[in-house]
Design a binder for these strands. Sequence first.
DNA 1: CTTTAATAACTGACCAGTCAGTTATTAAAT
DNA 2: ATTTAATAACTGACTGGTCAGTTATTAAAG
Lengths: 212, 212
Amino acid sequence: MLQPGPPKFQRRKDDRPGEIVAAALAVFSEKGFAGAKLDEIARRAGVSKGALYLYFETKEELFHAVVKSAIAPNIAMVRQRLESFPGPFGGLLELFLPTIAGVMATSAVAPIGKMVIGEGRNFPELARYWHDELVAPMIGLVSGMIAAAQARGEVRAGDPRLYAAQIMAPFLMAVLWRETFVPVGAEPFDINQLAAQHLGVLKAGMLTGASS
Amino acid sequence: MLQPGPPKFQRRKDDRPGEIVAAALAVFSEKGFAGAKLDEIARRAGVSKGALYLYFETKEELFHAVVKSAIAPNIAMVRQRLESFPGPFGGLLELFLPTIAGVMATSAVAPIGKMVIGEGRNFPELARYWHDELVAPMIGLVSGMIAAAQARGEVRAGDPRLYAAQIMAPFLMAVLWRETFVPVGAEPFDINQLAAQHLGVLKAGMLTGASS
DNA sequence: CTTTAATAACTGACCAGTCAGTTATTAAAT
DNA sequence: ATTTAATAACTGACTGGTCAGTTATTAAAG
């Protein structure tokens, strides 16, 4: 018993939170909040369950950390890309729709969003956080750009907030479809193809002749 | 203690299943599958928990019964209303969108659908059932009508299935919004107003000049 | 009297959260 | 350099509570 062998664990205080959040993201995405077991999150993060509680006080606080980590990188990118666009509304749509399609197809927004929808009733603070930090700003941003375009005569009369919902809705549907029905055999939607066709409908359906 | 008083319970074998399913629908809608407690379902149905097991073998079978009860009345009604419509596609949209809006606003499709989305990963048979019995037929029905309208030259070129998704998506979004974000203070969408504006965009964005 | 719908107390599994003890790491003392 | 003391990251067995499902018993109904 003189050979030291591999150490049972390392002390890596700085790295643990990120690793735990990443493992939690994966498990929450697969199982939802209630279905996610802390033992499994700990196992995937390579620590014991007890270690989770050194960094997060409760399961719900861990859930919060996951949601925040999924939101932060994306919201800022989209906002900045939209606000810096100088051209007419038709061109903005041509930029915006593929951007949204890309975020939906690749980021953690989709599975975490589904989780919020599924468990929001049981964890209202989560739904509130998701709404206040991600959804409402995004709807507000798009609504504002539509209202401005209407003032320039580029977009037809109509409620800007409803227009914003119409623009976003097919992407929400495609993501939920992928998360919910594709695993049980449904044919997926090609999100980029959807974005292209949606762009066609919106340009013909929303724009006046005054836009390019 | 000789007074008989009211009986402790009645034996109503024929009525129990419907009452239990109704109570289960309410509790599942509020809490989701994992969050719904059988004790609460039994209490609301006016029976003991043991009585549930006289009519349903497991919680999941009860969930199945709830899903079926929410689907059956609606799918048939919508299908029949659509298939009996004789006019051009523009007129069909004028009929279809308010119909969908009504179903979404009033029926149990919305909360149960949200439940399926939220818990589908953990209960794949449920997601499969919902897809096969409700969603796929509806998408197929709408897609077929779009393809027929394209053959008549009334609708522009494009994938009929994607068009169907574009038509349905805002209603899905409005319902999820109501279920998820309105309870935490978000401004609701007026689903009828959304239907009206959506109709305008679709008519201008999908139809050719050949339709009325 | 027999049948069976219905009850209510019960069981066993599961799991979030706890805590007493262990081990890696750092640093002070020799 | 080497030993020793102090610190804190980490572990894993444990607990208290919850809940789906079971069963012994009661009572309604013919």
